[in-house]
Amino acid sequence: METKDYSCSKTKDVHAIKYKMSKSKERCMAYLSSLHSHLQVLSNEDLKGTRIEHGFKRAFMSLFGQDNDTFTSTMFLNMDQLHKQLDKDEFQEDGSMAAFWVINKQFHMFINSQETLLQHMSNVKKSVAERTRHQRQYDRRVNKRQMQMQESKVDTGKAFDADLVIIESSGPKSEMQDESSRPGNDTVGSR
């Protein structure tokens, strides 16, 4: 009877492990399917006929060393190979991991290029902020200098106006003196 219980226990263990393997495969395939769907959406961003199509293709070639069509088709070929490995009933770790590492390498190349691109974008943003700060400092100084020049002109104008008032008020006296000192003036000669 103990032998029967032992073999029944072993059978239950085997079934439990098979069930876990089955669930593990389902999760793995679900994750792979989600990844595939997401990549499909990303690759369907159709730029054909748009103004940015040529620039995008040049940028993609510069970042990844291959055109976006080649990159996409290689990525989906690698995804299919990984799918075939993971979908086998008889799981083979070596084949599955080899297929995984191929696509992982391609993703890392993509991710690293994105990080580089994001770093460049960050540097551009910092540069724009720095230029903005310098431009504002420059504008403030120029505006301050213009205000000082305008104030100086106003002060000079006030001083000029004040000089005119003094000259005008002293002007008639001078004219009187000038008239009295003219030759042939009766006032000076009659005395």
Rank of each mutant, 00 (worst) to 15 (best):
M75Q: 10
S96L: 08
M21T: 07
E2K: 15
H54K: 15
I103K: 09
F160M: 06
G189L: 07
I17A: 14
Y31G: 11
G157Y: 04
S170F: 01
L82R: 06
D80N: 08
E130C: 14
G49Y: 03
K48N: 11
V102Y: 08
S34C: 06
T70G: 03
L63R: 14
S9V: 10
I167Y: 04
F76V: 02
Q137R: 07
S62L: 03
S174L: 15
M79R: 04
V154S: 09
I166T: 08
K20V: 03
F160N: 04
E2G: 15
D94S: 12
Q92P: 01
A59P: 03
G171K: 09
E168Q: 09
M1H: 06
Q40S: 09
W101D: 13
D178Y: 01
L77E: 15
D80I: 05
D87Q: 12
I167F: 04
M21G: 08
S174R: 15
R140P: 00
M109C: 07
S122E: 15
Q114P: 05
F76D: 06
Q177P: 10
Q81R: 13
G55T: 10
Q146G: 03
D69S: 10
A16R: 13
G171S: 11
L39H: 08
V165Y: 07
K158E: 00
N104L: 01
F60M: 02
V124S: 02
S152R: 11
D5L: 10
K88F: 02
Q150F: 00
E90A: 11
E45Q: 14
L35C: 15
A162T: 04
K10H: 13
N78C: 09
L63A: 12
N68I: 04
Q148T: 04
Q106V: 05
I167R: 10
A99E: 00
D69H: 12
Y6Q: 15
L164D: 05
